[in-house]
Design a protein around this nucleic acid. Structure first.
Lengths: 203, 203, 203, 203
DNA sequence: CATGAATGAGAATTCATTCAT
DNA sequence: AATGAATGAATTCTCATTCAT
């Protein structure tokens, strides 16, 4: 009996994940992937248009989540600047990061450490830039709403802030911290950030 | 007419720097370098044993400086933990970093962003690890000398500290901050670090 | 239109045989082979992992036969030393050599004269050594079975014996003796050997 | 003080001998030679027109001796076929071979085992052919002088005879037999040859 | 869905030799 | 006599991708 389309596709993705993790995007050949997936090399191209597309598809869940977090967390969408004072907000944000790492630990590793040569190799920079722009826009909006707060924050500061976050993420992944350790480090980090943030905008 | 050895060598290095900076180590071919340097491809091997060696030689000034800084700044050699309180120490440290960036801005870019595929591709990790070990050793030595201070600092904390430093360096390089901006950011960073450090060891 | 796999493979092998024979392993380039076989250079690597593997595969029939002859002829396996007196034994041995030359004349030429630079370049020496060891072991076994015979034969003598055989083989090949001529020379040689042998062990 | 021309030349030859012996003609690069001789690469070409010429010059003493032996021993020059009966002749011949090995052991090794890629790579075959022709000519001359002897010897037999001799030489060199061992083996061989020879021509 | 065959564009490195000084 | 610089021609092997079936 012929393997179901999804089976083969799934197998390719699983094998890819393993190989990309081991050797990185560039050093992993399509031949390796096909061989280990037990399929013909050309057949791989029935499922994915190119090696790059395969990589992007593989990372889709992780990048989707990151995009979502980008919009919601640094959220231009409705979160009021004053709500950052509430306890629950910090908790929620923490959980979001935790979830992402719990679910996509390996995909995030791929994205941050193993993507060179692929079209995702600049993802971190792209993400940080986008986040920075969103936050700055949001700050401007908040200024209109709450003219009393200080939103005179340099772009570079916001930028650096986002970079710290990614660096932390990278360290957590690189050193394979346990969930307990991650939680502890993350908690410190987010508190530090929120507090610093409040102070900065003087609310 | 025969070109002086140093001319050609210098030309190769200049061209390499430009190309590596533009396309990275891996994507830059020896052919490109030779063509742009106006020499025969094989002649390149007269000056450098391999593409990798060329890259290492090119980065030598920067890596040398970093190694020196490693030993002197995080220096296990003679700096007393108490001297970190003095104004001058912070100043000096700041100047050291400033100098490195001023002199080797592009080489540091190459080292940190464009070295993949070369033997220097893991330099950041190597450096951070080594720095971490040196600092921990130094802390142990200080404990003997000043039993009253708290040196109960986790390895991961020290590690993270070193990573922050590199991240900052990366950001400064990546965004091509002017010297004025660098000085400002660096100053903040070092003060932050020294203060945090003092608090941590409770002196 | 797609060529059958075996066609191309066969063509590569045929072309290789011709070129290796003409210029030797080292002086024959993979480019030459591909061009003359009418295929793309990289396609050659579809069929053979390397130039060396191609050479070994090409010679496989001959080396296999030699290995078989090694085990059977100088055979530690069951041939009794006394059976060397029988007429049939000499006949059979002769035929074996004749067959090998008849079937693999050119492959044997490649193996003995054109293999430098390949992993088979020391085949003659390897073969002679192995044969020598086998014969010496067999002699020891015969000594147990027939304590009356003289098996006090020096290793160097056995060695030299095997070398003569190869030299003869080489001469026959190098001078392209006809089958008739080969048969005549071989016959002399084998009779000479068997007679000398009998005398030596005094049976 | 500048090195004398002969010194440098001598040094090049010594170094070459060592390197060629270790790695063979082809695998030894002119760079290696120059480096180890402590001279500039181009300077090597002041002493020898090419790598090949260097090799030939190095082997000159050995090839000269072999050529001389060729003429004298298988001597078309005056040796009467009947003198082969005398004791002294065998002795003299033996000594000649012994001398050559004693004096040129390493050069002969180079010639026989390490010359591939050089213009001397076919020396053995060339020598054997020439010897064969000389002997056949000489036999014809003897026939005129002594019509009673049998000179009806096949060319291939003479050829094989010369090949045996070289094979023996090769074995002696390859296994680094001591002078004592060489003498013993050689003695057997020459006696065998002379006796066989006498029998063959029925004198 | 699946396959075997085929391709083209490289890429790093080697080496004997020559030239100008 | 000696040198440093330079050359050109080669060579093996890689890899993502496409085509015909």
């Amino acid at each position: 009996m012929q393997t179901l389309k999804t089976d083969t596709r799934k197998r390719i993705l699983n094998v890819s994940k393993r190989l990309f993790l081991k050797k990185g995007f560039r050093e992993t050949t399509t031949r390796d992937i096909a061989r280990e997936a037990g399929i013909n090399l050309s057949n791989l191209y029935h499922y994915f248009a190119s090696k790059d597309e395969l990589f992007c598809q593989l990372l889709k869940p992780a990048t989707n989540t990151l995009e979502a977090m980008l919009n919601e967390h640094h959220g231009i969408k409705g979160v009021d600047i004053l709500s950052m004072q509430e306890e629950g907000y910090v908790e929620a944000t923490l959980e979001e990061y935790m979830d992402a790492i719990r679910k996509y630990r390996n995909l995030l590793k791929l994205l941050l450490f193993k993507s060179q040569g692929s079209s995702l190799e600049g993802y971190k920079e792209y993400y940080v830039e986008k986040a920075t722009r969103l936050v700055l826009d949001w700050l401007r909006a908040m200024k209109t709403k709450h003219p009393e707060i200080n939103t005179d924050v340099s772009g570079f500061f916001v930028h650096l802030n986002n970079v710290w976050m990614f660096t932390l993420l990278e360290e957590v992944l690189m050193h394979d911290l346990t969930e307990e350790e991650v939680r502890s480090v993350m908690s410190d980090y987010i508190q530090f950030e929120v507090i610093g943030w409040r102070k900065m905008i003087q609310i």
